[in-house]
Write a protein that binds this DNA or RNA. Structure first.
Length: 487
RNA sequence: GGUCCCUUCGUCUAGCGGUUAGGACACAGCCCUUUCACGGCUGCGGCAGGGGUUCGAGUCCCCUAGGGACUACCA
């Protein structure tokens, strides 16, 4: 494939939807795969709904995912501007050209008139297609409308009896009949372009070679092709990728839970997992791999391997994947990722080495970063729950439980700081095991409880290693004092 | 309504005329084990339905059903 230019063109009317992120990802992947350029374009022609805020939100979400763009609103490029609201003069120019060539015309119909026309068509069982009544207005009629103060729109004159054929890179051949397409609007009364016009002008003038977008645009494609033909412009390749659905099979929306990339970030998903999961929604590397590093995805990504049918977003599987990534990514990276999630009012993590030890241990039980607070309670004196419940009393109703803990405290005290490691810690317990003939649960449960006040939780050695010698000793001594009341 | 697209375990998917229809998540059971988790193993479970074509069809064709998109001066 020669140098390709692909784009992602969101409208800034809200957050970055997870489906949009997937579309962006597929475009980005293709650009990376074939050494092409990935362009970000803001489609803000809806003056009512577009906001700068959501533009920011979208930029942030894309950056978080690592979907960096070669050309776009923030960094510019040779084919800008990259915001449609800043390109109005371009659309007007092309629209006028089309009018001059009699390929487009001014239409003075009001919404009311059009609604009525549509209603009549439907009543007669005909297709609700614009009649083309303003195609050939006389200059008298035009003057009359102008005098009334009516503002025209510019409509494209859709050719009659034309078969529109194209080959979709993911769907194959698709065919449409031009008679079913009404003369659609190019320029609205406010002077802003309509979607179908703006995309074509932009994709054309930005030299886009591959248009990869959601399935919902498949039926827009014939209109756009007609426009390309009218402009005598080269038609790009199209690839329509399936939508993402919620668990009930309908289009993924808020009522299915989190749908914005931001929310996933906030919930503690890590970007590597999200990107990996998203890439597998509608695409498959044809192997049995599931956890695939991004470099490898780039290497394998092909449009022809994109599936045609929609995929249901499965949060459970995303969570599984996230836990896989949390367990396997570089520990320093994980520490960095986790820091923003730590409740600083509860946990003092100024001791970086200590926090790193904690993360090493809790990377297994947590599935999202937000879980850290729940898993960290054992390691801090101010958060551990020191309630002595019946279960604990039961365990320490046996004299041997005291023997274990008391003796371990003594041995631990004798381990020099520079020999404080898992091996020596195990050795110490082994000695007690042999000396007092205590083993299994009788041996470990008292230890676990003395360190955590819980009968389930982190392993004994994990606790000792993470806490370190002093903290461990203090913890166990305190516990003995507390439990001795019930002796 | 019309046009177009889609249809393999509950979910994500592999399959591209000859397979005991493979993998992953979830679920169940077992194992590992000082608890929980992790991990390992086993199991459960699928070609939407009906017609063709063919020696042979998940795979090709047609019909039906279901789902989706478009049919806007929204993108």
């Amino acid at each position: 494939m020669k140098e390709c230019r692909v784009r992602f063109a969101p409208s800034p009317t809200g957050y970055l939807h997870i489906g949009g992120a997937r579309t962006a990802l597929f475009n980005w992947l293709l650009a990376k795969r074939y050494n092409g350029k990935f362009i970000l374009r803001i489609e803000d022609t809806d003056q009512e709904r577009s906001t700068k805020d959501s533009e920011e939100v979208i930029f942030r979400a894309m950056k978080w995912l690592g979907l960096d763009w070669d050309e776009g609103p923030l960094n510019g490029g040779d084919f800008g501007p990259y915001r449609q609201s800043e390109r109005l003069y371009i659309y007007r120019e092309y629209a006028q050209k089309l009018v001059a060539q009699k390929k487009a015309f001014k239409c003075y119909c009001t919404n009311e008139e059009l609604d009525e026309e549509r209603k009549k068509c439907l009543e007669q069982g005909k297709d609700a297609v614009y009649s083309g009544r303003c195609r050939n207005l006389s200059s008298d009629e035009v003057q009359k409308f102008e005098k009334e103060g009516r503002k025209p729109v510019i409509r494209f004159e859709v050719p009659k009896d034309k078969q529109i054929l194209f080959t979709d890179l993911s769907r194959g051949d698709v065919k449409f009949d031009s008679n079913l397409i009404g003369d659609f609007v190019l320029l609205k009364t406010d002077g802003f372009p309509s979607y179908n016009f703006a995309v074509v002008i932009d994709d054309y003038s930005m030299k886009i070679t591959h248009v990869i977008r959601g399935d919902d645009h498949l039926t827009n494609t014939p209109k756009q092709i007609l426009l390309y033909e009218a402009l005598k412009a080269k038609i790009p390749e199209f690839a329509h990728i399936p939508m993402i659905l919620g668990n009930d099979g309908s289009r993924l929306s808020k009522r299915h839970g989190a749908t914005s990339v931001e929310e996933y970030q906030k919930d503690g998903f890590i970007k590597e997992a999200v990107v990996n999961y998203l890439s597998l929604l509608g695409w498959s590397p044809k192997s049995n791999e599931e956890i695939i590093p991004i470099e490898s995805i780039i290497e394998k990504f092909e449009l022809k391997d994109v599936s045609k049918s929609p995929a249901v977003f499965d949060n459970t599987k995303l969570r599984w994947m996230n836990s896989q990534y949390i367990q396997s990514i570089d520990i320093d990276k994980l520490v960095d990722y986790a820091i923003p999630f730590v409740d600083k009012k509860l946990y003092d993590i100024s001791d970086k080495a200590f926090f790193k030890r904690i993360m090493t241990v809790i990377s297994e039980p947590i599935t999202v970063l937000a879980d850290v607070n729940k898993e960290m309670v054992y390691y801090f004196d101010n958060t551990i729950d020191k309630t002595i419940d019946e279960e604990i009393k039961e365990i320490f109703s046996k004299e041997s439980a005291f023997t274990v803990v008391e003796n371990y405290i003594e041995r631990l005290g004798n381990i020099p700081e520079n020999d404080y490691n898992e091996e020596s810690l195990k050795q110490a317990l082994r000695t007690i095991q042999n000396e007092f003939k205590i083993k299994g649960k009788e041996l470990f449960m008292p230890m676990r409880v003395a360190l955590t006040y819980k009968t389930s939780g982190p392993g004994v050695y994990e606790m000792l290693i993470v806490l370190g010698k002093e903290r461990s000793l203090k913890r166990m001594k305190e516990f003995l004092e507390a439990i001795s009341v019930y002796k």
